[in-house]
Nucleic acid binder design. Sequence first.
RNA 1: GCUCCGGUAGUAUAGUCCGGUCAAGUAUAGUGGCCUCUCGAGUCACGGACCCGGGUUCGAAUCCCGGCCGGAGCACCA
Length: 489
Amino acid sequence: MPNADKYEQVVTRFSPNPDCVLHLGSARAIILSHEYARLYKGKFVLRFEDTDPKVKKPVLEFYDRIREDLDWLGCKADEECIQSDRLPIYYEYAERLLREGNAYVCTCQPEQFRKKSLSREPCDCRSLSAEENLERWQRMLEGSYSEGEAVVRVKTDMKHPNPAVRDWPALRIIDAAKYPHPRVGSKYRVWPLYNMAAGVDDHLLGITHVIRGKEHLTNQVRQEYMYRHLGWKYPEAIHYGRLKITGAFLSKSKIVQGMSEGVYTGWDDPRLATFAALRKRGITPGAVKKMIVDVGPKTADVTLSWENLYAYNRKILDPDSKRYFFVSEPIALKVKNVPKAFRAKLPLHPEKPELGFREYTVTPKGEDEAATFWVAKRDGDAAEVGNTIRLIELFNVKIDGVNADSLEASFASEAYDEARKAKAKLIHWIPKSSEVPCQVVMPDATVNEGIAENACKKLKSGTVIQFERFGFVRIDQVVPKLKAYFAHK
RNA sequence: GCUCCGGUAGUAUAGUCCGGUCAAGUAUAGUGGCCUCUCGAGUCACGGACCCGGGUUCGAAUCCCGGCCGGAGCACCA
């Protein structure tokens, strides 16, 4: 990180607008800010930028949701601040800028100003005296101007090559009665804009390193004028590129829109790339973190693929996820001539016997000494009469008949070696009446109906397990019905 | 249109500042083998990239110029 050693203590911040839940798009800002702060034994600040009660109105529930997301990511803030608590501070600096002739209250129509600005000309308000400006400022606060009639502009350079930099607006009026703020209500009618609020706070909070998206590049140029006016030094700034992930949109507005239209089941709908959704699916924060740290802070845009995230996640999950059987779209498999009762001891993890086992007893019944199992339709479809199939850790069977929704077979042998010799397919199974209904919600929000083995009843919600030959899932609820979310293969 | 960024395999990244050791490393994905009582993990091998064109140089992914492509900003949003 640039010039980290020049500062006594590195201070970074993450500053979301609480108008939506967090998603992967914010991951870079959060994780890099947090990791750098940790790396240099500094401080990481969470700052809620909720200064627009009108266009990007904050919503109370998101303040907490954002805190939860940060905790989940392991990026808990050392300090927190909320901009809507700090209006008097912004007023103070606005006044100072006005008093010192570095800002003015502009009453021009926005289009008018734009026109002037585009031709590099100052508007009439620019040359007002400090006294007049302070007077106008008082009127802004008191309510003599209504929404849109006056705005405080910070003086920059009307001839700056980038028109976006020229005398940018710092505070504006919002009809407080019409657009109350969820936290402070109608208490204020003059609200700071991003560059004013963020600029003042970055300095006052002692932020040494600002890590944000490159869309803020010109905001740095704008704010530097204000910093010069105030005699401050601008922090180090790192602007990273946009982050996309194939197949998901990382746009707050689209997420919010989809939510209000009811297309999603919640902020954690598996189709969304919100942290809440990732969490629900069993994507670990460690995987997200690793991926983001690997991507780093470069300015080029990146398009991540889910496969990459899954690979990181699998690496974390595989070593200690317990294994269970889940039969998707179950069909019955009847095996005849089972010579005796079998007891299958299935390890919960193939490489870690110390994690334990689950056991099932299979007892032949009736005249034909039959045992019945549930197997996946997919395996049934692949079966052919005459083939040998091995029921994992149990025995081998020979297929006698294939029907649309059931299979007939007869006992072939017990030894695993026999199955290997016959190149038999290994399939998973659940003894009939040892099953529990189970739904698996897939990443596209479709539901895979099936059954899980009885042992799953003892799982705790929140546990991530692997359904063998199916994929990693996170158990979401156990009662009244087993429900899991699919993570990945 | 104006003002800025950026472009290394399918994806992501290392190398670019301070030219040679880069006929380009790594991860993941792909293919093939081995291993494994999971379609998971492991393991071995293979295939795959410096946007294009000029220039400087003994030598350029790295420096310079031009082009092309991509992105961002140009809000009384953050």
